[in-house]
Simulated scan of single mutants.
Amino acid sequence: AATTADTDQVRQLEHYANCIGLAFQVQDDILDVEGDTETLGKTQGKDQANGKPTYPSLIGLKGAKELAQSLRQDALDSLVELDERADPLRWLADYIVNRDA
C-alpha cells in the first residue's frame, strides 16, 4: 500500500507534469512567432497563418512569455520537497521555457 509520502510525491509530480506540459505548449507558440525557420525545423509563423489559436494571439506575446515563466516557477515549486533526485526535472523545466527550437 502507498504511504502518505508516496501519495504526496505522486500529487507533486502530477502537478509538475501538468505545469511543464502547458509551459512547453506556450513556449512552442512563442517560438512560432519569434523563432527562426531554420532553427525551428518548421516554417516560422505557420500556426498563425493556419489560423490556429495560440497563446500569443490570445494573450499577447508578453503575456505568453509571462505565463511560460509562471508555469515554470509553479512546476519548480511543486518539486521543492523532493531531493536532488528531482534535479533532472528542475533542469527540464528551465530548458523547456528557455529553448529556441
Rank of each mutant, 00 (worst) to 15 (best):
D8S: 15
A5K: 15
C19M: 05
R11S: 15
V26P: 02
T54M: 00
L61W: 01
G51N: 10
N50T: 09
K62N: 05
L71T: 06
A49I: 12
D29C: 05
G41C: 14
D8H: 12
K62F: 04
G35D: 05
L22A: 08
R90M: 08
A2K: 10
Q27G: 00
L82N: 09
T39D: 09
K62W: 03
L61G: 02
D29G: 03
D8I: 13
E38T: 15
K52T: 12
L13S: 02
F24D: 00
L89G: 00
E14S: 10
L22I: 10
T4G: 14
K46W: 09
N98Y: 10
W91V: 15
Q73Y: 05
G21S: 15
L76I: 06
G41V: 12
E38R: 14
L76P: 00
A75T: 02
N18P: 04
S57F: 10
V80I: 08
A1D: 11
Q73H: 10
V33Q: 07
G35R: 04
L13W: 08
T43R: 12
K65Y: 01
A86T: 06
T7E: 14
Y16Q: 01
N98K: 11
A68Q: 01
Y16P: 00
L76D: 00
G60K: 01
A5S: 15
A49D: 11
Q73L: 13
E38N: 12
N50C: 14
R11Y: 13
L79H: 01
L67M: 14
T39R: 15
K42G: 09
L82C: 10
L71K: 02
P53H: 03
P56E: 07
D8E: 14
N98S: 15
Q12R: 11
D32T: 15
T3A: 14
T39E: 15
R11I: 08
G63Q: 05
P88D: 07
V33H: 02
R85P: 09
R90I: 12
W91D: 11
L58Y: 05
D47Y: 06
T7G: 14
L40H: 14
R85Q: 13
G60Q: 04
Q25D: 08
S78F: 08
D6S: 14
Q27Y: 03
D100C: 05
R99G: 03
G63M: 03
K62Q: 11
T43P: 06
L71E: 02
Y95D: 03
W91Y: 12
D29A: 02
Q25T: 06
Q27S: 06
P53Q: 05
E81W: 08
R85N: 10
D29S: 02
R99C: 06
A2F: 11
K62R: 12
G21K: 06
D77T: 04
I30H: 04
G63R: 01
F24E: 02
S78A: 15
T7S: 13
P53R: 04
V33D: 02
N50I: 08
A1C: 07
K46Y: 13
Q9S: 12
T54K: 01
I20N: 00
Y95K: 04
L13V: 06
R90T: 06
D83V: 10
G51S: 13
P88V: 13
V33E: 02
V26M: 03
Q25S: 09
K42Y: 14
A5T: 13
